[in-house]
Design a binder for these strands. Sequence first.
RNA 1: GGGCCGUUAACUCAGAAGGUAGAGUAUCUGCCUUUUAAGCAGAGAGUCGCCGGUUCGAAUCCAGCACGGCCCA
Length: 522
Amino acid sequence: MSLWNNSIDEFCGGASRASFEGFRPMEDLNSVVRERLEKAAELERQNVALYPNGYQVPDRIKQLLANSLGKKAEELEADETAYTIAGRVLSVRSFGKSTFMHLCDSDSKIQVYLQKNQIGEDGYALAKRIDIGDIIRVGGPLFRTKTDELTLLVKDFTLLTKNLRPLPEKFHGLKDIELRYRQRYVDLMINEQVRETFRKRARIISTMRRFFAERDFLEVETPMMHAIAGGATAKPFKTHHNALDMDLYLRIAPELYLKRLLVGGFERVFELNRNFRNEGVSTQHNPEFTMVEFYQAHATYEDLMGLTEELFGLLCREVNEGKTSLEYQGDVIDLSAPWARYTFLESLSAIGNVPREALESLEGAVGYARSLGIGMERFEGHGKLLTKIFDLVVEPRLVQPTFIYQYPLEVSPLSRKTEGAPEFVDRFELFIAGREMANAFSELNDPRDQRERFERQIAAFQAGDEEAHQMDEDYIRALEYGMPPAAGEGIGIDRLVMLLTDSPSIRDVILFPHMRPEKKGL
RNA sequence: GGGCCGUUAACUCAGAAGGUAGAGUAUCUGCCUUUUAAGCAGAGAGUCGCCGGUUCGAAUCCAGCACGGCCCA
């Protein structure tokens, strides 16, 4: 007992003070951490740097694997070329005078072999002090073991970073969902498929940027902090600007700013960034989430259907080995164009089996909604009620990609009215795997109509609808200058990544999902 | 906000009916120069989420709270 106490003392405040100025032991010191601390102190006493830098690492494991693909043992044996790689030690199999380790760098893993007669008595003694979780640099030629595994025969090695906390169990990995999200760094270290998910996320986003760039869309950045939270129906987060002494809202959507850019003359714009909505957290919702919104002048929502089919097909092939179909949570989903299209009302009757009287009158809808257990607020009209019915009886059944178009005017305050059907708008939503994936419409560019819509929203707000739009006078003014006819669309990136990576929860595709703070001391 | 479930060693998990906690991995010691969930022998490691209550006695039963998960609104 007193042995490790003394050693920790030395490590934290005694002999090693110079190199550990300010270092304090963690509160949850367990026996393994104590032993690591002691081992680290011992290494420092032997003048082994625990956190050196400046070492060159010319080779990547991925390259070594690629270059050696198909090379026979004899072929490798004959090649004396030494390679130098660095990575985290993930496993150790140690014998009396030799040791195997697996080393992992950012995208690949390779076995390395340390032998006493290669690195000498002192070198091997130091090698024995390497722990799982340490980051090391090794150099030497490649060979194949008896079991034909490509392995680097270590001629020299350097400790680059000492690990002080044991890694999770090698076989089961880190399973505890809470720990995986709170300590994503450990999750990423241990669970290769998690790293792969986030690599795919990056690829999806960069492919999307390229897709829009190729079509002459300009990427822009509009404000995250809004004086009026507009562009969607959602509750915003409120914040305060001290110097200006004014309340601001984190944006719920960039829409109204992007359309101001159409007015300004940028005819194709997109923004791919975060939105914030002050609502519940679930497998589908994170308070901050990523959206791409894009606007194209002289296009209609029907044009965007084709563009969306093209984009989703491309993204799917990009992360899914060139295939245009994928499996999501057991369902095979075919993203090949063209996708099914139903008007909103058609879908209610054809897919949701909603009776005609519910579609034709508010009274009919109220009665039917009640039979489904759907409540109704005073400020809600027929259109709003039908969307609630839709969410319950149609949306979950839209597993294969489906466009639902011609939405009720009441729930679409920024969309152009459908010609000849003024209670409906030129808008579609895309559903895949029972979830809304995109929302698009031909943009309302008549300032008189837009003002009326805002006024209806304000009436709804006054009647108690907290999510209703506020009046945005500057946006009306912009429309008065003239916004070209245009169509715009928003796609939820997180849900898209969930779909393309077969992830059941939005938290699986967000690196650091929102969590309540942990109360326990670290 | 409501319902159900979970929280035990650093990790993955056992602990019917109340009697002061176990395994595997990891760690430490010894043996071991082609292993790969290496092996063999031994050892250490726990505020059983927190706080109350019932009881001679609580990881276990009860109430509350915290955090998390799933479902619902």
